[in-house]
């Protein structure tokens, strides 16, 4: 049996209040959520971070999240919604199973997803821009419905070791 709490919810060994379910995806109510109606949506398969979720599943996960967001608007009288994803412990991830949070919002509800802007010099901005561009030039978004589960050919080549280190670094999660 998996020790992952989210896998146990998916398997039904931890009961939950389900709001959506299909073969690959489950959406449940967070009973200790940031606001009443806070839902989390996750793949039934175990993937620690977003980068590991296959494209077809990821596309479906966010399409379901969008529908959950609409259902929250239309049925719970929310004034807004947030979609919130954390990848890695420094980003606030607490369970090593990728989840998407959809949070109903009202004015002054105690939720804070704002930030104080950092001031960067023109040079700092340009440096970041160049580094990112160098990486994103290989990015190609495939149509997930046509070619599910086939990795994109143009994806950045990363050595096996690098991949391992990278995953381990992000996976340092209880």
């Amino acid at each position: 049996m998996s020790s992952c709490i989210v896998c146990q919810i998916a398997a039904g060994s931890i009961p939950s209040k389900k709001v959506y379910e299909d073969d690959l995806i489950l959406a449940v109510l967070d009973v200790n959520g940031a606001n009443p109606g806070h839902c989390f949506i996750f793949p039934k398969n175990h993937y620690p971070i977003m980068e590991q979720v296959p494209d077809a599943e990821l596309a479906k996960l966010f399409q379901v999240s969008n529908k959950v967001s609409s259902a929250i608007f239309e049925n719970l009288g929310a004034q807004g919604t947030n979609i919130f994803v954390s990848n890695g412990i420094p980003a606030g991830q607490t369970v090593a199973h990728f989840t998407i949070n959809v949070i109903p919002r009202k004015e002054n509800d105690g939720v804070n997803l704002q930030w104080a802007p950092k001031q960067l010099t023109e040079e700092e901005m340009s440096t970041v821009e160049l580094k990112l561009k160098d990486q994103t030039k290989n990015v190609a978004v495939q149509k997930p419905d046509r070619k599910p589960r086939i990795p994109s050919v143009k994806q950045t080549a990363v050595s096996f070791e690098e991949e391992e280190n990278f995953s381990n670094q992000l996976r340092r999660i209880p």
């Binding site: 608007f73 929310a78 004034q79 919604t81 947030n82 954390s86 420094p90 997803l113 580094k131 990363v158």
Partner: peptide
């Protein structure tokens, strides 16, 4: 992979109340 980050957040806000 390109800048010195240890994780990422993805955030979307729908409506003023959501920021």
């Amino acid at each position: 992979r390109s800048i010195d980050a240890q994780g990422t957040n993805i955030i979307a806000a729908n409506g003023i109340a959501a920021g």
